[in-house]
Amino acid sequence: IGSLMYASIFGNVSAIIQRLYSGTARYHTQMLRVREFIRFHQIPNPLRQRLEEYFQHAWSYTNGIDMNAVLKGFPECLQADICLHLNRSLLQHCKPFRGATKGCLRALAMKFKTTHAPPGDTLVHAGDLLTALYFISRGSIEILRGDVVVAILGKNDIFGEPLNLYARPGKSNGDVRALTYCDLHKIHRDDLLEVLDMYPEFSDHFWSSLEITFNLRDTNMIPGSPGSTELEGGFSRQRKRKLSFRRRTDKDTEQPGEVSALGPGRAGAGPSSRGRPGGPWGESPSSGPSSPESSEDEGPGRSSSPLRLVPFSSPRPPGEPPGGEPLMEDCEKSSDTCNPLSGAFSGVSNIFSFWGDSRGRQYQELPRCPAPTPSLLNIPLSSPGRRPRGDVESRLDALQRQLNRLETRLSADMATVLQLLQRQMTLVPPAYSAVTTPGPGPTSTSPLLPVSPLPTLTLDSLSQVSQFMACEELPPGAPELPQEGPTRRLSLPGQLGALTSQPLHRHGSDPG
């Protein structure tokens, strides 16, 4: 009997000691992992102490058991019943959930998450997105703005933001810190809205009876308010094209079509300037034949640059190039080494500058006005007194259609001029006259002087055409309008007829 009692007592005591040691061994194993994590990542002392304290409290609170892992091991129907039991206190005593059906309560219970916070733990920081609604079931918390405590909340209090009033989550206007050990039930806004969409009859009752104890939403960050730039940057990543407008005076608003859609830094370009900076079609017209890549860069430059609305530039004389043409100036200075066709295309550029300027006046029909002061630039669209967005969009579309028509007509005119030049060069190729044979009589004449090349004649003739079109064909006081194609086609051969009437002889060394 004594040996039996000794064996039973010894066996029970050893089993008890073994169970104690097993729990202690698990605790030390998990604690060792936490300390190894702290050492590996070199976490500083204040945060390291918070980690160790939280682990110790969580171990004593749950005995080292992962409740979520245990809950996920059950089937979904059983999980709903378990969640309904775990959140029964909240669902029974909170006013917004009263009167809900059994199915609605089960769906809500599945969406709730339980959070346990030790003292000093910050649940929400200032500036964080308010993605959830919090219900306090135990403990107390404090809300701070800077170093000032603005509120202390306790059991059955609710904090967050009214989700039904805002389409997008706002930002917190303060820090939420736990004063004691707290148990909180939180539900994400997407989950709550999903359940309320499934039960629309409960939705009206819920929003009407929901009383948020403390609204954390920062009202200064609401979209459309003066301080909402940061919020707009976070939620409006896919922005449309940006529009900046110059201020319109009362006198300017009476004149229709007073602005032109141009790229940034293009205030001095012609009315047909689009795409790359520098001139019509993204580059100076005089350098068009020598740089074919300008047409390839036109599309990307047009689509990537934001639109700006600026006044037209001052008018340019008909014979003056659009500006920024070092290529043609070098050719004029060193005409001995340049291609003979460069002079002809220089005359073509003069005609283009004249036609572009006159067509700009035809479509816009307003006098040039000086540029406004820099303080009046970049007025935002949302400022008071601005035109409605639809009106601005319609004006932009009208300007775009005008620019497209202008570009089409300029292309047709350019093709006409090039065809005339090619026809003239085919009839009378460039050549130098040879020395004529002296006559049989004693009164022999001296050799004839060489005839100037055709490109120079073409430049003079085209300059005469531009001056003739600019000065004589337009009646005084009438708006400057571009001439039609047949009129220009008839004027060019008439001007060139006198020049080509002389018999030109080919030089023996000319390969053409």
Rank of each mutant, 00 (worst) to 15 (best):
160 G>Y: 02
446 S>D: 07
243 L>H: 07
180 T>G: 08
349 S>C: 06
224 G>L: 09
231 L>Y: 12
471 C>P: 08
178 A>N: 01
452 S>F: 09
360 G>M: 10
353 S>Q: 11
316 R>N: 10
157 D>V: 02
303 S>D: 09
237 R>L: 11
299 G>D: 15
497 G>R: 09
227 G>A: 12
216 L>D: 01
365 E>G: 10
397 D>S: 08
435 V>E: 13
236 S>E: 10
157 D>Q: 05
312 F>D: 14
477 G>C: 07
445 T>G: 06
245 F>N: 12
127 G>M: 01
173 N>T: 08
443 T>D: 12
334 S>E: 07
422 Q>C: 04
269 A>F: 14
251 K>H: 09
456 T>I: 07
342 S>C: 10
308 R>E: 10
219 T>N: 07
202 F>Q: 05
325 E>K: 15
158 I>N: 06
299 G>P: 04
166 Y>N: 10
327 L>R: 10
360 G>L: 07
186 K>F: 12
403 L>D: 03
197 D>H: 14
462 L>T: 09
165 L>S: 09
348 V>I: 15
183 D>H: 14
330 D>Q: 03
423 R>S: 06
346 S>N: 08
146 G>I: 01
152 I>S: 04
446 S>K: 06
511 P>S: 05
361 R>V: 09
388 P>S: 12
217 R>K: 04
344 A>N: 08
250 D>H: 12
506 R>N: 08
373 T>V: 10
384 P>K: 15
479 P>V: 11
349 S>I: 03
322 P>D: 04
375 S>H: 04
379 I>K: 15
303 S>A: 09
375 S>V: 08
472 E>R: 10
389 R>G: 13
387 R>V: 06
219 T>H: 12
313 S>P: 13
154 G>I: 05
237 R>K: 06
460 D>R: 11
413 D>K: 15
312 F>P: 15
492 L>G: 07
483 Q>F: 13
135 F>N: 01
492 L>D: 14
201 E>D: 10
407 E>V: 08
201 E>F: 02
340 P>W: 07
253 T>L: 10
221 M>G: 08
349 S>F: 05
454 L>Y: 13
223 P>C: 07
499 L>E: 10
477 G>P: 10
241 R>N: 07
459 L>I: 10
148 V>R: 10
191 D>S: 03
461 S>N: 13
208 S>I: 04
211 E>C: 10
236 S>W: 07
349 S>Q: 12
441 G>H: 15
392 V>C: 09
421 L>R: 03
410 L>G: 04
467 Q>M: 13
257 G>P: 14
172 S>M: 02
347 G>W: 04
474 L>G: 08
440 P>Y: 11
481 L>V: 10
418 L>W: 01
452 S>C: 09
213 T>F: 01
302 R>Y: 05
186 K>G: 07
509 S>H: 11
274 R>A: 10
197 D>M: 06
366 L>R: 07
187 I>T: 01
382 S>P: 12
412 A>R: 11
425 M>P: 10
264 P>D: 13
414 M>W: 05
198 M>W: 06
132 A>I: 03
238 Q>L: 09
480 E>A: 08
483 Q>S: 11
384 P>E: 04
414 M>H: 05
461 S>A: 10
182 C>W: 01
389 R>F: 12
396 L>G: 06
381 L>S: 11
243 L>K: 06
358 S>Y: 15
129 L>M: 10
380 P>S: 08
437 T>N: 12
431 A>C: 09
328 M>T: 12
486 P>D: 10
438 P>R: 11
263 G>E: 13
157 D>S: 05
369 C>G: 10
267 A>D: 14
268 G>N: 10
345 F>R: 05
228 S>Y: 11
232 E>I: 13
384 P>S: 11
396 L>P: 05
129 L>F: 09
416 T>N: 13
315 P>Y: 15
299 G>H: 06
397 D>I: 14
411 S>D: 03
298 E>N: 05
339 N>D: 13
151 A>G: 11
427 L>C: 05
410 L>A: 03
181 Y>L: 05
349 S>K: 13
306 P>K: 12
245 F>W: 12
461 S>D: 11
284 S>A: 09
147 D>Q: 08
462 L>V: 08
341 L>E: 04
393 E>W: 15
297 D>V: 14
144 L>P: 02
389 R>K: 11
404 N>D: 01
253 T>Q: 13
309 L>M: 15
170 G>Y: 02
411 S>T: 14
233 G>S: 09
166 Y>W: 13
285 P>S: 08
354 F>C: 08
267 A>W: 07
334 S>R: 09
353 S>P: 10
464 Q>T: 10
440 P>H: 09
326 P>M: 12
154 G>V: 06
244 S>N: 11
207 W>S: 04
332 E>C: 09
460 D>Q: 13
311 P>A: 12
494 G>Y: 11
414 M>F: 12
456 T>A: 08
439 G>H: 12
333 K>E: 13
229 T>P: 07
340 P>G: 07
504 L>H: 05
349 S>T: 11
136 I>K: 01
190 D>Y: 04
430 P>T: 09
394 S>A: 13
372 P>I: 09
362 Q>W: 03
202 F>A: 07
430 P>L: 11
169 P>Y: 03
306 P>Q: 14
394 S>Q: 12
399 L>C: 04
376 L>S: 07
370 P>W: 04
145 R>W: 05
247 R>P: 13
369 C>E: 12
